[in-house]
Amino acid sequence: MASKFQSRLVGTIILVAIGVIFLPDLFDGKKQHYQEQFASIPLQPEIGEEDEFVTIPEPEFAEVDLPPEPVTVVVDEQQGTASVSASGTVNVEPSPVTEPKTGNKDSGWVVQLGVFRNFDNANQLVAKLRGAGYQAHVFPKEPQQGDLARVVVGPDISKTKLSTQLKDLEKLTGLKGRLLRFNPLNP
């Protein structure tokens, strides 16, 4: 017979083996198995009797008649109207060159109300003027470091219309405005 020590040792090993095998399952609880459910893509679609195949017609190409000789194009340096003669040459008639009008750069008037170092103050004044119904702007539109903000009302073609608005603008803003010519190329 086996000694008491050997039987205790075998019993201890069996208890430890049972603990290692079954205790983790006992403490983990119910296991959830995630299985992705997907349908396999068939290699060839199933064709029923009611399915019909439609044939796509071949594209039709139009034939173009080309002239037997190469076409020469004659172009002057100035743009103008063009015409094609029967022999296949293109004649271009130049358009007359028009000079720009000399008075365009001084064609309007503005009332300058002030020059501000702080753009926030200038924008607040413009918002106040626009709320009162005046066409007000801050120049320059995209300020750089060190630029000053000019607040103007206008531009308008009529100098008299703007000069009559000077008193109303002074009552509204408390600033005495100056009537200046408007240059659209450099506002």
Rank of each mutant, 00 (worst) to 15 (best):
V115F: 02
L185F: 13
G131M: 04
V92P: 00
K141E: 10
T173C: 03
D65E: 15
K141G: 01
V74C: 07
K4Q: 14
D65P: 07
R117K: 15
G29K: 07
N186G: 06
P42R: 13
S40W: 09
G177I: 00
L129R: 01
Q32Y: 15
P143S: 00
V92R: 04
Q112N: 05
Q112M: 07
T102G: 00
P100Q: 02
T173I: 05
G80D: 09
P45T: 04
P143H: 00
V71F: 01
Q165Y: 00
L185H: 11
T164D: 12
I157Q: 11
G154S: 03
V90G: 02
L166F: 00
M1N: 12
L66Y: 15
V64Q: 06
S158I: 02
A122E: 02
F38N: 14
G146W: 00
L179G: 01
Q78A: 14
Q124W: 02
F139D: 02
V115E: 03
T12R: 07
D106W: 08
K159Y: 09
V10F: 12
V84F: 13
L179M: 11
Q112P: 01
V111E: 01
Q6G: 08
G133W: 01
N121F: 13
E58R: 10
A39R: 12
V16C: 09
G29M: 01
D106F: 03
K4R: 10
A149Q: 00
K159N: 10
G29H: 01
A62N: 09
V10D: 01
Q79K: 13
V84P: 03
E77C: 02
F27I: 15
P184S: 06
K31N: 14
I56Q: 12
